[in-house]
Nucleic acid binder design. Structure first.
Length: 508
RNA sequence: GGCCCCGUCGUCUAGUGGUUAGGACGCUAGGUUUUCAACCUGGAAACGGGAGUUCGAUUCUCCUCGGGGCUACCA
């Protein structure tokens, strides 16, 4: 029984959906599809529906559903209806909608628009191989079509294995106007009588999608181009069921650098991985939208709000785009530089903790303890450290290796690190001692200005700034590259600075 | 193999029947500078090929070549 009234009038506001199947973590490609759907919905004041397609019971896992929802939310792509929020067309998990599909399958069977097929997999494989060998499209030619429906249902009742196929019309053209690709035609003869359900309670993807999109009043199906060839099948099912057709828009695929569909093997594809590495959601979204959309301007940076304003399906690219992680990383660095220091610091702290540099002081609010030295430091102090590296950071997870010297008791480095260009040890030692002397006077007035003054003065006495500034910086950081010696000395404080300089001087 | 989609620098792209074919990432040379980064200036780098239409094609048409997707009792 079908008691849903056919509602052929389009809804006033567009309704779009993201239909991920929880068989793995949120994939970059899914996130991109989500972004396009989200922008389209928000721009047109429509609804963005999240529907979990978990009809494949073996492969669907709750933890993946959780990962998908969490990371979508992290990206800022908020949905209006979904398994977690409910909505007027609940439930939003296909596994909970099984009974909704059954009447449609029964109807197709009753109206003889679908039929039971008893062919074995071996038969089908043989047929496909034969078809391939003579250059015909592989498809089911309708062997079981002739079986009397009465007889068929008897056989099914007796337990004979069977699947349900749609009677596909022969030699008809199914055409649809894709919002991105334009008009696309398919000949039904190439499709054959495809399977729409394993049985009355196990609908297959193409059938479930059509019914759900109808029941949920989806007006626009915006999805990856890998679904183009499913579209004629879905249109045929909709026709057989007398359901209205949504608009279609197929997004070009995201490709790996080897030009293949983005794959787990070669690329990082899970959004959670990017999140853990310290990519910012703004950077990810900005990067991804530009991979397949351009408003026609020489512009690279867009916020989600600006995109909602400017986005159009017409400007979506037709060709697939290669995922260029270098560009993503550049953009992430850009967004890190734009971020406020307190926010950036808050993002960095978990990485410092994970790296065993820092421990949160349990009761003291906003205080941290440096693990090695047991010193208690404030959030403000950590901000100073992070501030030194804000313009050098590309990915937040890099922060520990950049600032490690603030958290270590002793620095380990080769004495040669202290040598500037072709200077000899004596000269460097002398420079270091001059720096120590100049800096010692400042103990009570340890300001950036004074440090600068003292070091530059010492340098000018020697005649070459590098001769003193390089070893000072190296002694303070133990690194080839770092922030400037003035800044580092200032943040490190008088005591540690002098200690490290003296230790360095003794090494030479 | 069959069906479908796509084709401007290495990559993401802008663009027009006549442009020095523009921007960005990356690369590179300088500048700034104690290093690195950031920033500034410059450079190398593209219309897949062949016909046709046209006074003129990167742009329009056809063919070809190349790349990709789909081809499940997965989604």
């Amino acid at each position: 029984m079908i008691d849903q009234k056919l509602e052929l009038s389009a809804p006033d506001r567009p309704r779009v959906r993201l239909a991920p199947s929880p068989t793995g973590p949120l994939h970059i490609g899914t996130a991109r599809t989500a972004l396009f759907n989200y922008l389209f919905a928000r721009q047109n004041r429509g609804s963005f529906v999240l529907r979990v397609e978990d009809t494949d019971r073996q492969r669907s896992k709750k933890k993946w559903e959780k990962d998908i929802l969490e990371n979508l939310a992290w990206l800022g792509l908020n949905w209006d209806e979904g398994p977690d929020k409910g909505g007027p067309f609940a439930p939003y998990r296909q596994s909970q909608r099984i009974e909704l599909y059954r009447p449609y399958i029964e109807r197709l069977l009753k109206e003889e628009k679908a039929y039971y097929c008893f062919c074995t997999k071996e038969d089908l494989t043989a047929q496909k191989e034969y078809q391939a060998s003579i250059g015909e499209p592989p498809r089911y030619t309708g062997h079981c079509r002739q079986i009397d429906p009465e007889e068929a249902s008897q056989r099914v009742k007796k337990g004979e294995p069977a699947v349900i196929r749609l009677k596909t019309p022969t030699d008809q053209i199914v055409s649809f106007k894709d919002q991105i690709c334009g008009k696309t035609d398919f000949n039904t003869s190439e499709l054959g009588d495809f399977i729409i359900a394993k049985n009355l309670d196990e609908p297959l993807y193409n059938l479930a999608v059509v019914i759900d999109d109808f029941l949920m009043k989806i007006s626009h199906v915006i999805r990856g181009a890998d679904h183009i060839s499913n579209t004629p099948k879905q249109i045929l099912i909709a026709k057989a069921l007398d359901l209205p057709q949504p608009e279609y828009a197929h997004l070009p695929l995201v490709l790996s650098p080897n030009r293949r569909k983005l794959s787990k093997r070669e690329e990082v594809v899970a959004v959670s991985d990017y999140r853990n590495q310290g990519y910012l959601p703004q950077a990810l979204m900005n990067f991804i939208i530009l991979l397949g959309w351009n408003e026609g301007a020489d512009r690279e940076i867009y916020s989600l709000e600006e995109l909602i304003d400017r986005f159009t399906l017409e400007k979506v690219q037709r060709s697939g785009g290669i995922f260029d992680s270098k560009r993503l990383t550049w953009m992430n660095g850009y967004y890190i530089r734009q971020e406020s220091l307190p926010v950036l610091t808050r993002m960095c702290i978990p990485y410092l903790i994970k790296n065993n540099y820092l421990v949160e002081v349990p009761n003291g609010s906003k205080k941290y303890q440096i693990k090695e030295t047991k010193e208690i430091v404030s959030l403000g102090y950590l901000e100073k450290i992070i501030g030194l590296y804000q313009e050098r950071l590309k990915v937040v997870s890099e922060i520990p290796e950049l600032v490690d010297y603030f958290f270590k008791k002793e620095l380990k480095y080769q004495p040669e690190l202290l040598i500037w260009k072709d200077k000899d040890k004596k000269e460097i030692k002398n420079a270091l001692n001059r720096a120590i002397k100049g800096l010692s006077n400042l103990k009570r007035d340890w300001s950036l200005e004074k440090i600068n003054e003292a070091l530059i003065q010492a340098a000018d006495e020697i005649g070459d700034r590098g001769t003193i500034l390089w070893p000072v910086r190296a002694a303070l950081t133990g690194k080839e590259n770092s922030a400037s010696p003035f800044d580092v000395a200032y943040v490190l404080g008088a005591q540690k600075t002098l200690e490290r300089l003296e230790k360095a001087s003794k090494l030479l």
